[in-house]
Every structure is written in C-alpha cells, then in structure tokens.
Nucleic acid binder design. Structure first.
Lengths: 240, 240
DNA sequence: AAGACCTTTCGGCCCCCGCCGAAGGATCGC
DNA sequence: GCGATCCTTCGGCGGGGGCCGAAAGGTCTT
C-alpha cells in the first residue's frame, strides 16, 4: 500500500528546501541573485546577523551545493552555484506571498525606484528596462511567444548584427522567460539574455549604481536602444 | 548600505520554502504529484505518520496555498493548487541530492520498475514511456529543441489528426520540458503534454495500475504509438 | 613586528516545531 | 439510532536549529 519512492525522496526534497527555509539564508540567496560574489561580512551586514552566524549559514549553503565559494586571502567570496540554482530561487521568490513593503523612508524609496527601473537578475537584465527590451524585441519579431518563448531567425540575425555571438548549445535554454518581480511581466533570461546583458555592460550601455544590483542606462545605451530597438526615452524610465 | 528589498523578502521566501522543508510534508507533495486528490488518511499512511499529524501538515500546506482542499462528507480531499506548484515541486525534486534507494524487497522492486516504465507526472506522462514519446515526436519533427522547446507546424497538425484540441493560450506554456527523475532525460509537459495524457487515458491507450501513479500501456495503446509515432514495442518497455 | 581586519570555533541559551495518543466532533452505512 | 470511519483539537514530550559573544586563527598593511 505504501509507495516507497515518494516516501523515501521526501527527506531529500525537504533537505534542499530546508536550506532556503530560513529567513537569513533566504536573504543571502536573494542578495546573491545579482550574480556577483559577496564576502561573508557583506552578507552578514546585509541580513543583520553576526559574522559567526553568517559563517554557519554559508557552510550549510555551500555544503548543500547552492553556493560555491572562493577564498582570496582573508576574504571568503560566495556566489550562486549555477543558473539552475538562480532560477530556483527566482521561482520561489515569485511564488512567495508578497506582503506590503513597509519601507517608506526617503532613501529606501529611492533605492526601490532605482531597482524597479533597471537591475540585474542573476546574469540578465530585469526591471522596467528588462521588460521594455523584451517587449520591444517581441514587437520587432525577434522573439516569438506562440509556442513557448523562442528566438526567431530575425532575432538571430539581429544579435549577430550587434556582434553578440551565442555560446554553443548546452543544457541551459537559449531563451527563457523570467517573471519580473516588480513589473509582474516576463523579461528575457537564458543564454541569450545573459549574452545581451554582458554586451550592454561591455558596450557602456549600462553601468552599476554603486555596489547594488541596480543599473543606470547611459546616454550611449539610450541611443543604442533607440537605434536598434526603436525604444523611445520614455519607455524605459517609467516610475510607478 | 543595506538593501531593504532582498532583506525584507527573505522571510517570505523562507516561509514558502519552509512548507517543503519537512520530510513528511515533502512526502505529501511528492505523492500529490500524480495530479490526483488524496484523502488525509491516505497521505498519513503513505508517509507513515499519525492522522493527527497529517491534519496539522495539511493545514499548513493549504494555508500556504500549495494545496487546495475539497470536503466531501467525512473525507478531506487535497490536491496540488495549480500546475505552477507542481512544477516547483518537480524542480526541487530534480535538484535534490539523490541517495541510493535502499529498498530491495521484491514487491518494492516491482513497484519501482512499474513507475520507471510509465507513470503520470502531475498531469502528463513520465517514465520511459513519456521519454520515448517525447523523443519520437522530436525525431518526426513534431517538436523542435533548437531555440527552446517548441511545437512545430507538423506537430500542430499531428495533434489535430489525433483529435486533440489545444486549449486557448493561458499563462501556462503549451509545451515545456520536464526533467524525468528516473530517465534523467526530458519529457513533454505543458498544456500539450497534459492534453496528450488525457487523450491517452480517454482512448484506452493506458490505464492506471491499481491506485498508484504507475500506468500500463494497453495493446490498443501499443498499436496507436506504433501507427502514429513509429514506436516499436521494445522502445517503451525497457527495464534498466 | 604590531595592529587591523576577516573569518572561524565553541559553548550556551532559547524558541520553534514535529510527533504522538487520547478524547471529542462529524458523517456515513446499516 | 448505533457502531464504524474519518477527521480534528489539545496537552505534552523531545529534538533540532538559529542566535549571540568571546576567543582564537589567518591574512594583509604599515
């Protein structure tokens, strides 16, 4: 009568979920969603816990395979293990019950607005800018949503024209839809999304704002988006 | 210096992950991955806990939105809330560390083999059969994996020929790749996968084995797969 | 060599949570 | 109505896990 399979796998699944079932560890992972490597102290301060506590959490996350670490001198750098892990955290975050944000101090609001406008989401672009780019690419026939998200022939040509070469096919899909937290609409992820984000940084279209995951569109970037995607200046600077 | 966004969302994500961070609750969810509704007592027996314990867990899962319930007389039926929830559990299960299965009694092995051969995965087909169908559809040009998984024009025609009508587009993608636990290769999910599974049941191609999630291919189904997909009898009855 | 900084180990505290059994509704079948 | 079955509530037990501060180990700078 018992089903040995799902009963035995339960603890495995629970162990993985348990890594993310703590507020502090979840906070770490969400912070690391910017795709960069953080030090232990940075994460501890970010989450508001003691350094020793952060060490214990990082040991668990690294041991569980969600994070990889790299030691440089007296620093311990950690980052998300791979894109699959990033996607798992994104998925959980998008399904998590959202409570009203009680932060209403002026600097907090400014930071929130900057994040809503444009930010990195692991290794691709998100926020109003990411969504606007994705929708512009759809309008111009570079992306197709009919049977799941795909890159069209025109899309491939458009990327080549920009000098973006796609990496050889791996297990990671070339294009993937990623639900945007702030916009509640999908933006472009996958290897194409990552390559475009890298290109945007390399070409000076966008730059990091301080050390946060928020990015700013440069004048060069504004022109590039207008020329290559027909994006007007207003489209990607909306403030809700 | 602090990032209010990811710090505040941490507890939300942790609350969701916490629902799956218990071996018993995880076992419930994995069992419910067969897409059917189970009673509280069935789940309790399946997981090997007291009925009162099961009640508490179900209250949490329903309250957290992962499960929906339906009361019929003295029975409490629960099932997964939606396909997104099913996908989340699938994803977690496929990423969870897999330990060697210590079950080696004869009936247990038989059940495992039946599950590995053909089973339902939420609302679509999995196991060797599900993978074989997916690969045959790819070989015949009904599915395309070049730019993410898509249904080709031939695929649409092939479905229509079988009398399978696709539901109108919703937020759920028509075709989606779902990593098979036992085969370690992808099988077809999404609304197309669900429609094909329903059609297979309705047409008598497959039937449930007892009350488990394992299914058996009927003689009718064997012929249908040979005629419509060119599948030989050997392809979909391999035992590892 | 000395001081500053990042990280780790350890002990101890405390709270949360999963488990059970017993008892009490609620509902069905006879 | 009367048992049988399903579910729920409650009290109590036990273990695990998150947190901190103090102290110690490495590493870089001066």
């Amino acid at each position: 009568m018992r089903d040995p399979d799902t009963r035995l796998d339960g603890p495995d699944l629970a162990a993985l979920a348990g890594l993310l079932a703590d507020g502090t560890r979840a906070s770490f992972c969400l912070a690391l969603l910017d795709g960069r490597a953080w030090t232990a102290t940075e994460l501890a301060r970010h989450a508001g816990v003691a350094a020793s506590t952060a060490t214990e959490h990082l040991n668990l996350l690294v041991g569980g395979g969600l994070l990889v670490q790299e030691r440089q001198g007296r620093h311990r750098y950690v980052r998300l293990a791979d894109p699959e892990t990033a996607q798992l955290i994104e998925t959980l975050a998008s399904m998590a019950p959202r409570r009203v944000t009680p932060s209403c101090s002026l600097p907090a609001v400014n930071r929130s607005r900057a994040l809503a406008r444009a930010r990195t989401c692991y290794d691709h672009l998100a926020g109003a800018l990411g969504v606007a780019i994705t929708e512009a690419m759809t309008d111009r026939g570079l992306l197709d949503w009919e049977q799941g998200l795909t890159l069209t022939g025109n899309g491939t040509a458009w990327l080549a024209e920009l000098g973006i070469v796609l990496p050889p096919a791996t297990r990671r899909p070339p294009v993937r839809s990623c639900l945007d937290w702030t916009e509640r609409r999908p933006h472009l992820a996958g290897t194409v999304g990552a390559a475009m984000c890298r290109h945007a940084f390399d070409s000076g279209w966008i730059t990091r704002i301080g050390t946060s995951r928020a990015v700013a569109l440069t004048e060069i970037g504004r022109r590039a988006l207008r020329d290559h995607l027909g994006l007007s200046g207003e489209t990607h600077t909306p403030i809700s």
